[in-house]
Amino acid sequence: MNRPLKYIITILAVLLVLILSLDIQKLDEYKAGQTVAVFNATEYADDVWENKLPYTIDKAPEIITLVDFLRENKETAFNEYGRKLGISKTWYFLVRDKGVITAVEDEYLTVQLSNREQIRIATSFIFGNAVRDGSGVVDISVFVNMTQFNDVSIALNKRVKEEVVSYLKQSARTGMNLIFAGVLEINEDASDFNTLTVVPVKALLMDE
């Protein structure tokens, strides 16, 4: 084989290797492929509130049961009923129960349970992540960033304020029966379970 032809074949072979190792794409096509759908926290929270939370509420323990368990074996109670996020000492417990309203304060209702213990139902300062993290149905790994994840908290708290708190503020009176579900926030170092405050996610008032 003459020399020039050999050089041409060698060069072609090198070019072939290079071309096969490159992936050329139009810039417009590449940018289109990178487009990320805009996250809608309200839609996400609505789905949690309407389609997922009701099922987890059905499986939630009564407060009386939980508190007895906490007093008897705190660590096991935390692990069995509690949920927490990441590295934290704050645990959330989805609970349900019923009782009688014994006081209506500016920021909470006081409710006496069937074992005569009293708990509070928050009607103000509904902030933070109790509903999001206590529900057990919001998975942090599906969010691109913490802003999206935190926007879900804001959206869920809005549902609490607009649907549950406004209802309670308007209609709750001392002496009424209350059936409710909500989330407790308890620090794992806590030893006193006497004055617990529930962030309500569901409430039904009935006259005495």
Partner: peptide, 8 residues
């Protein structure tokens, strides 16, 4: 590994 781990 969890994708994100918040630290309190």
């Amino acid at each position: 590994f969890a994708g994100k781990t918040p630290v309190e």
